[in-house]
Amino acid sequence: MIVFVRFNSSHGFPVEVDSDTSIFQLKEVVAKRQGVPADQLRVIFAGKELRNDWTVQNCDLDQQSIVHIVQRPWRKGQEMNATGGDDPRNAAGGCEREPQSLTRVDLSSSVLPGDSVGLAVILHTDSRKDSPPAGSPAGRSIYNSFYVYCKGPCQRVQPGKLRVQCSTCRQATLTLTQGPSCWDDVLIPNRMSGECQSPHCPGTSAEFFFKCGAHPTSDKETSVALHLIATNSRNITCITCTDVRSPVLVFQCNSRHVICLDCFHLYCVTRLNDRQFVHDPQLGYSLPCVAGCPNSLIKELHHFRILGEEQYNRYQQYGAEECVLQMGGVLCPRPGCGAGLLPEPDQRKVTCEGGNGLGCGFAFCRECKEAYHEGECSAVFEASGTTTQAYRVDERAAEQARWEAASKETIKKTTKPCPRCHVPVEKNGGCMHMKCPQPQCRLEWCWNCGCEWNRVCMGDHWFDV
Rank of each mutant, 00 (worst) to 15 (best):
I2P: 12
V5G: 02
R6N: 04
F7D: 03
N8K: 02
P14G: 04
E16Y: 09
V17E: 02
V17Q: 01
S19R: 11
D20T: 09
T21N: 05
S22Y: 09
S22R: 11
F24Y: 13
Q25A: 08
K27Y: 01
K27D: 01
V29R: 09
V29F: 14
A31F: 02
K32R: 13
G35A: 07
P37R: 10
P37S: 10
Q40E: 15
R42D: 07
I44A: 03
I44Y: 05
F45M: 05
G47F: 03
G47P: 00
K48L: 03
E49S: 01
E49K: 02
L50Q: 03
R51G: 05
D53T: 06
D53L: 02
D53E: 14
D53F: 03
T55H: 05
T55S: 09
V56C: 07
C59V: 04
D62A: 14
Q64S: 14
Q64D: 13
I66N: 03
V67C: 04
P73E: 10
W74P: 14
W74H: 12
G77A: 11
G77H: 12
G77M: 13
Q78D: 15
Q78L: 14
N81D: 15
N81Y: 15
N81V: 14
A82D: 09
A82V: 14
D86W: 13
D86H: 09
D87P: 11
D87Q: 12
P88D: 13
P88G: 11
Q100V: 10
Q100N: 13
S101L: 10
L102R: 10
R104F: 07
V105T: 14
V105K: 14
D106F: 04
D106Y: 04
S108A: 10
S109T: 10
L112H: 12
P113E: 13
G114L: 09
D115W: 04
S116W: 04
V117R: 13
G118K: 11
L119K: 15
L119V: 11
A120M: 06
A120W: 04
L123P: 15
H124E: 14
D126S: 07
D126A: 09
S127K: 12
K129T: 09
D130N: 10
P133T: 10
A134V: 11
S136H: 12
R140A: 11
R140D: 12
I142D: 12
I142V: 10
N144H: 11
N144L: 03
N144P: 10
S145F: 03
F146W: 05
Y149C: 03
K151V: 09
K151I: 09
K151H: 14
G152P: 01
C154Q: 01
Q155K: 14
R156A: 15
V157F: 07
V157H: 04
G160D: 00
C166V: 00
S167K: 13
T168C: 07
C169R: 01
C169Y: 01
C169I: 00
C169K: 00
R170C: 08
R170N: 13
R170V: 04
Q171N: 14
T173F: 06
T173D: 13
L174F: 15
L174M: 15
L176E: 02
P180W: 01
S181N: 12
C182H: 06
C182A: 08
W183D: 00
V186Y: 01
L187V: 07
L187S: 07
L187D: 03
N190E: 10
R191S: 09
M192P: 02
M192G: 03
M192W: 02
S193K: 14
S193W: 10
G194Q: 03
E195F: 10
E195H: 12
C196D: 00
Q197N: 12
Q197K: 12
P199G: 07
H200W: 08
C201W: 01
C201G: 02
P202A: 12
G203C: 02
A206W: 00
F208Y: 05
F209T: 14
F210C: 02
F210V: 05
F210T: 03
C212H: 00
P216S: 08
T217N: 11
D219R: 07
E221G: 08
T222Q: 12
S223C: 13
V224F: 11
L226M: 10
L226S: 00
H227L: 05
L228V: 01
I229V: 15
A230N: 11
A230I: 07
T231P: 13
N232L: 00
N232R: 01
S233I: 09
S233N: 14
S233Y: 11
R234D: 05
R234E: 06
R234L: 07
C238I: 01
I239Y: 06
I239C: 06
T240W: 09
T242Y: 14
T242H: 15
D243R: 12
R245W: 03
R245T: 08
V248P: 00
V248R: 00
V248K: 02
L249V: 08
L249D: 00
V250L: 14
F251A: 02
C253H: 01
C253M: 01
N254T: 10
S255W: 07
H257V: 01
H257R: 00
H257G: 00
V258R: 01
C260S: 00
L261Q: 03
L261W: 04
H265V: 07
L266D: 15
Y267E: 02
Y267P: 01
C268N: 01
C268A: 14
C268Q: 01
C268P: 00
C268R: 00
V269Q: 05
T270R: 04
R271T: 07
L272I: 08
N273L: 04
N273F: 04
N273W: 05
N273Y: 05
D274Q: 04
R275Y: 01
F277Q: 00
V278C: 11
H279E: 10
P281I: 07
Q282W: 06
L283G: 11
G284D: 03
Y285F: 09
S286P: 02
L287K: 01
P288F: 04
C289G: 00
V290G: 02
P294K: 07
P294N: 07
P294L: 05
L297C: 06
L297M: 09
K299L: 05
E300G: 09
L301F: 08
F304Q: 01
F304C: 01
G308Y: 04
G308C: 05
E310R: 05
Q311K: 03
Q311G: 05
R314Y: 02
Q316Y: 08
Q316P: 00
Q316D: 11
Q316R: 11
Q317Y: 06
Y318E: 02
G319C: 06
G319I: 05
A320Y: 11
C323R: 15
V324S: 06
L325S: 04
M327L: 09
G328Q: 05
P333Y: 02
R334N: 07
R334W: 06
P335M: 08
C337E: 03
L342W: 10
L342I: 10
D346H: 09
K349L: 09
T351L: 08
C352V: 02
E353W: 06
E353L: 06
G354F: 10
G354E: 09
N356Y: 09
N356D: 13
L358N: 15
G359M: 09
C360T: 03
F362R: 04
F364S: 04
C365F: 02
C365S: 03
C365H: 02
R366D: 03
E367W: 06
E367I: 15
E374I: 06
G375Y: 06
E376W: 07
E376K: 13
E376I: 11
E376H: 11
S378D: 14
A379Q: 09
A379G: 12
A379T: 13
V380D: 07
V380N: 07
V380Y: 11
V380Q: 06
F381R: 08
F381W: 07
A383S: 11
A383Q: 11
G385R: 08
T386K: 14
A390G: 10
Y391V: 06
Y391M: 07
D394A: 06
D394G: 05
E395V: 09
E399L: 12
E399G: 10
E399A: 11
A401M: 02
A401S: 09
A406V: 10
E409V: 08
T410L: 07
T410Y: 10
I411K: 14
I411F: 10
I411H: 10
T415E: 11
P417K: 12
R420A: 13
P424E: 09
P424M: 08
V425C: 12
E426F: 08
N428M: 15
M432L: 05
K435G: 03
Q438W: 06
Q440I: 14
C441I: 00
C441Y: 01
L443F: 09
E444K: 05
E444A: 14
W447I: 05
N448V: 03
C449V: 01
C449N: 01
C449W: 01
C449M: 00
E452Q: 15
E452G: 15
W453Q: 03
V456L: 15
F463D: 01
F463P: 00
V465M: 15
